[in-house]
């Protein structure tokens, strides 16, 4: 079963091209409306990774990132932007992004980052699981 990916970007051509490039390896869903994306996260809840544009129309991508993390704290998020700056990257990382990429992205590089992000997510989940197990043992 392929991991599920959600792409949120107001540029439809980017959504389509990324979707086509990533679909052989992932189950990709894309939306251009951030609110719709958040709703999908809430309703379906099985997305492993979110690729999020930092400037979505007049919406702030950081706000969307924070909202997504509130819905699913374990979801891995890769932030991408055409208006990259150190300041915005720091903000994104602080808000819980796995990494921060400047457009235009290199697909191979993106695939690497996606792999790392999923592994990171998986490790996090495992650490969390083991932590829960240990906590349970300690209780008995």
């Amino acid at each position: 079963m392929k991991p599920r990916l959600l792409i949120i970007d107001d540029e439809k051509s980017i959504c389509v091209s990324l979707s086509l490039a990533l679909s052989p390896s992932f189950d990709v869903t894309w939306v251009t409306d951030p609110d719709e994306g958040l709703e999908l996260l809430r309703s379906q809840g099985d997305f492993s990774l979110l690729i999020l544009d930092l400037v979505i129309g007049d919406r702030d991508g950081l706000e969307v990132l924070q909202a997504a993390k509130e819905v699913d704290s374990e979801i891995a998020v890769i932030v991408m932007t055409a208006y990259g700056s150190i300041r915005s990257s720091v903000k994104a990382m602080k808000a819980g992004a796995f990494t921060y990429l400047s457009k235009p992205l290199d697909i191979e590089e993106l695939m690497v980052y996606i792999g790392q992000a999923l592994e990171f997510r998986s490790l996090n989940q495992r650490v969390s699981y083991l932590s829960d197990v240990l906590n349970t043992r300690d209780q008995y």
Partner: peptide, 27 residues
Amino acid sequence: AHEIRNPLMSIRTFATLIESQGDNRQV
């Protein structure tokens, strides 16, 4: 300069797809 990056990204991604999935009708 930033604005150009969005269409550039699409073009670049499609270019990559042509190379890897050029025979894909949807691509």
